[in-house]
């Protein structure tokens, strides 16, 4: 059907409605196709794009990056040491408000070592910029969906950052994007909690990836995203709300707040899964190119 045409003939054909008419074909439409299977087709077409093929092979071969750095271990120790001390102080001296005190102090303890570790390392200029851009995209994601509560791509972007650029970058993108977006949404006592929980999700994503427990497949990332949204983000933010406005923490109270939080958490987790499913492969691929182009070895 395709006889060879030269460019002029082709253009004549291309821009002439009458001539091109004879080539038009009706698009076969199956009336039985339901909305759901259409959605599935949308998701699938993206997956079939051959540009995604080689990444996983490429990464399964990279053995060296699986080791945990020393700084990561030190950070973990600080976390484990400081927490009991603060709790003891809170219980002894803060009376009524011990939970709020302990909670907020813990958040700070948890955030500061990450920041300090990053500072003392003297990060590369390019690294700084990449983290800043990713945080900005995450912030934009949070503000773009302001009308749909709990439907936010921010965690998906944080997880992707952690997986591509390592635990530290993951933590920073999480913490910074939560902090910055609160310049637009309003800072409050919730800021340190949000910073920590978003940061730790990025961190865990990075660690698990290095340990080989988290793969860069869609299913693996989505599963992780779902669990992280419910157990890490929900797991921290729900009791945080309780701690912020009561003093008498009871088992019932905790169970109560978790149960009342379930629908919200589920909605949130679903949105994370949807976003991860849709953007993870493309994003990771793009970030990998940037990593190579900038010579960023994480």
């Amino acid at each position: 059907m395709s006889e060879k045409r030269n460019v002029d003939e082709f253009l004549d054909l291309w821009f002439d409605d009458k001539k091109i008419e004879q080539y038009k074909m009706p698009i076969p439409e199956n009336p039985m196709v339901s909305k759901l299977s259409k959605l599935f087709r949308v998701l699938k077409t993206d997956a079939q794009d051959e540009i995604f093929v080689s990444i996983e092979d490429y990464y399964s071969r990279q053995e060296t990056s699986k080791k945990l750095t020393k700084r990561t271990i030190v950070t973990l120790i600080i976390l484990l040491l400081m927490s009991p001390l603060t709790i003891a102080f809170g219980i002894l001296f803060m009376g009524d408000r011990k939970y709020t005190f302990i909670g907020i102090m813990l958040m700070f303890y948890a955030i500061i070592p990450f920041f300090m570790g990053f500072e003392s390392r003297k990060p590369q200029t390019r690294e700084l910029i990449v983290i800043a851009v990713l945080s900005a995209i995450a912030v934009l994601g949070r503000t773009a969906f302001i009308m749909v509560p709990m439907f936010k791509p921010i965690l998906a972007i944080i997880i992707i950052s952690g997986v591509t650029f390592g635990p530290e970058a993951g933590f920073l993108v999480g913490a910074v994007s939560m902090f910055i977006s609160n310049f637009f949404f309003g800072q409050g006592p919730w800021t340190p909690w949000q910073m920590f929980s978003a940061g730790i999700i990025g961190f865990v994503a990075g660690v698990l990836f290095r340990k080989g427990l988290l793969k860069r497949t869609r299913v693996s990332l989505c599963l992780f995203g779902f669990l992280a949204a419910i157990f890490i983000y929900g797991g921290i933010m729900n009791p945080a709300a309780l701690i912020m406005y009561t003093s008498h923490i009871t088992i019932e109270g905790i169970i109560g707040i978790y149960i009342s939080g379930i629908p919200v958490d589920l909605a949130h987790a679903t949105s994370v899964v949807i976003f991860l499913w849709l953007i993870s492969k493309g994003m990771i691929e793009k970030l990998e190119r940037i990593k190579k182009k900038y010579g960023l070895l994480v």
Partner: peptide, 20 residues
């Protein structure tokens, strides 16, 4: 206290309106 982090925050604050 935290020169890199605060510069990063400053850059992020610049990127957000630019990206929007």
């Amino acid at each position: 206290i935290m020169p890199s982090i605060s510069l990063m925050i400053s850059m992020t604050l610049r990127f957000v309106p630019m990206l929007r």
